[in-house]
Simulated assay, not measured.
Amino acid sequence: MKDNFSKQATEYSKYRPQYPDEMIDYLISFVKNKGVALDVATGNGQVAHKLSRFFETVYAIDISQNQLDNAIPGKNIIYKVSQAENTFFKNQQFDLITVAQAIHWFDFDSFYKEIYRILKRDGIFAVLGYGLFSTNVDSDKILRNFYHNTIGPYWDTERKYLDENYKTIPFPFDEIVTKGFENHLIWTFEELIGYLETWSATQHYISKNNKNPIDLIYDDLKVSWQKNDKKVTFPLLLRIGKLK
């Protein structure tokens, strides 16, 4: 698994959008027992924190200690550094395992082998994520050019799985058909820029060119943002399955 987010862990914690409670409640409705859950590649712990309202114990793992240092605390949440593909958990330990906005970084074969080892036979496995957001028409033009052209060459190849709405990832489970969700937000200009800063391609661009690509669009985007609708819509991605 790649670690693209340790450097900007604080910004990641502050600016990454949350998953709406409606989506989490829907996911939980498929889980029979609410004993122990695991959130893989938990990042800032936002999903683990939401799960902690339902489960007796929630484990949350990530390869980045910096991410875990910025994670949301909870009395029944246990944060640990661990690879997704090689964990320290017991066989058939979990009633629910989630991975949000991260599965595209994993070695699929090794990860799924681990899921089959540590998920209970009647447990639920869920992949969550979100695609490229949309906003007002003027700002969208600037942002899509930035996404596809300015930093387009700097995206890791794994990003394609998100662009394809996780429909093309391997999914060796008995899949449950799910309904669709969207996340609707109102962002300040600071929140918009902060989110763009968390993109791995933005950071790759900075590392290679010693300058921030957001500077290229900053002024035009600010004017556009100030005079237009500031609503932001994320298409949410959800796949749920059981062991075969």
Score class of each variant (00 low, 15 high):
164 E>D: 13
74 G>S: 06
89 F>P: 14
7 K>M: 04
36 V>Y: 02
208 K>N: 12
146 F>M: 05
127 V>P: 01
47 V>Q: 02
89 F>H: 11
161 Y>C: 13
42 T>R: 12
138 D>K: 12
183 N>G: 14
102 A>F: 03
62 D>Y: 05
201 A>G: 10
81 V>T: 14
39 D>S: 07
107 D>A: 05
167 K>W: 02
109 D>W: 00
148 H>C: 08
115 I>T: 09
44 N>E: 09
17 P>A: 07
102 A>P: 08
49 H>N: 14
5 F>I: 12
49 H>P: 04
75 K>P: 10
109 D>A: 09
159 R>L: 02
111 F>C: 07
149 N>R: 08
152 G>I: 03
138 D>N: 13
87 T>D: 03
15 Y>R: 15
117 R>D: 09
186 I>P: 09
37 A>V: 01
47 V>C: 12
29 S>C: 09
102 A>W: 01
48 A>E: 04
138 D>M: 03
95 D>T: 03
237 L>V: 02
141 K>S: 11
237 L>D: 07
6 S>T: 04
151 I>V: 11
238 L>K: 05
179 K>M: 08
128 L>G: 00
130 Y>H: 05
236 L>S: 00
9 A>K: 08
117 R>S: 10
118 I>C: 08
31 V>I: 11
28 I>S: 14
164 E>G: 07
1 M>P: 11
72 I>W: 07
187 W>P: 02
155 W>S: 07
154 Y>E: 11
121 R>E: 13
120 K>A: 10
60 A>G: 15
28 I>N: 12
201 A>H: 04
237 L>C: 05
116 Y>V: 04
32 K>R: 15
156 D>I: 09
160 K>C: 06
50 K>G: 03
219 D>W: 01
232 V>W: 05
139 S>N: 10
100 A>E: 00
19 Y>T: 00
58 V>M: 01
112 Y>H: 09
82 S>F: 01
111 F>W: 06
1 M>C: 10
87 T>F: 00
147 Y>T: 15
68 L>N: 12
6 S>C: 02
242 K>N: 10
114 E>R: 00
141 K>T: 12
140 D>W: 05
101 Q>L: 04
56 E>F: 11
157 T>G: 01
156 D>Y: 03
177 V>H: 11
122 D>V: 04
19 Y>I: 03
45 G>C: 01
95 D>A: 10
241 G>N: 07
169 I>M: 09
199 W>I: 11
161 Y>S: 10
121 R>M: 09
63 I>N: 11
148 H>E: 15
194 G>M: 07
158 E>Y: 05
